[in-house]
């Protein structure tokens, strides 16, 4: 019977060091899995439940919206709840964004506030507090992740001028049309100002601005999509044609 040779002290130290390095490699790999994949799963389940909640309280609308019901003026201003997430109250969707270009099923709940851990990391689009209201003259500005955390705006670069962006509230549909896109530095706060087309000037249009990260896997720049209100309609008048035949 041969006895196993005991490794020297140096040999054992190197062995443990090697195992620690392997462990570090595996942990870093796990972090990537968590960041790229797990956060999406977590946000997806929050968002799924949130969209169900939003739908639950509402009577289903099945008719197609008639042209006669499309209105240009007098859009109702929904009540935007305060951001109470700092007090531990979870964000709630006060509106839902539909983006047909991203797919018929693609819906993003909109909550007040742009806190990363409390709002955006849960998969919501966040409304910049203090920016305009839906359908009103001014700029309804939203932020959302483009990568990880549910990545609601992952397909932001596919939007083209003229594409509809439909905001659904408990009372109305607001159909915006994309007017342009731009890549700016994170310091370009005028993009969420009341009049992004002409910073500093009085707003004349009901605008909506989407902001998200650019390039992918980075926060160096921001991808901005501008849109203005085309028309609005009461919710019970029917589903806008932009959302496909209901």
């Amino acid at each position: 019977m041969t006895e196993r040779r005991r490794p020297s002290v140096a040999g054992r130290v190197v062995g443990v060091l090697g195992e620690l390095l392997i462990t570090a490699g595996i942990v870093i790999g796990l972090f990537v899995v968590w960041q790229v994949w797990w956060t999406d799963l977590q946000a997806g389940s929050v968002i799924g439940a949130e969209l169900d909640d939003f739908d639950d309280g509402l009577p289903p609308v099945t008719d197609a919206l008639a042209d006669a019901d499309k209105q240009k003026a007098g859009a109702p201003a929904p009540e935007i709840p305060e951001d109470l997430t700092a007090q531990g109250i979870p964000p709630t969707a006060f509106a839902v964004l539909h983006v047909p270009r991203w797919g018929d099923a693609e819906r993003v709940p909109i909550a007040e506030g742009i806190s990363l851990p409390r709002v955006l990391n849960k998969g919501f689009a966040g409304h910049y507090p203090g920016t305009g209201n839906i359908g009103q003259v001014g700029n309804f500005a939203l932020a959302a992740h483009r990568q990880s955390w549910g990545a609601p705006f992952r397909q932001v670069d596919r939007l083209e001028v003229g594409d509809p962006l439909v905001v659904e509230t408990t009372d109305a549909w607001y159909v915006y049309r994309v007017t342009g896109a731009e890549i700016v530095l994170p310091t370009a706060v005028e993009v969420i100002g009341p009049n992004p087309a002409e910073p500093g000037a009085e707003p004349t249009e009901a605008a909506m601005t989407l902001t998200t990260c650019h390039p992918l896997f980075s926060t160096r720049e921001r991808y901005i999509v501008y849109s203005t209100l085309d028309y609005w309609a009461p919710r019970d008048a029917g589903v806008p044609a932009e959302l496909g035949a209901a």
């Binding site: 796990l30 972090f31 960041q35 990363l116 851990p117 966040g126 902001t211 990260c213 921001r222």
Partner: peptide, 27 residues
């Protein structure tokens, strides 16, 4: 170990990553 990492450790260190958006403007 994976559970502890996913539930507590990774969420805690994520904000320190260079690709984590910070401040008012977000991604």
């Amino acid at each position: 170990v994976v559970l502890v990492l996913f539930e507590w450790v990774f969420p805690m260190i994520a904000p320190y990553m260079p690709f984590y958006a910070g401040g008012a403007e977000v991604g």
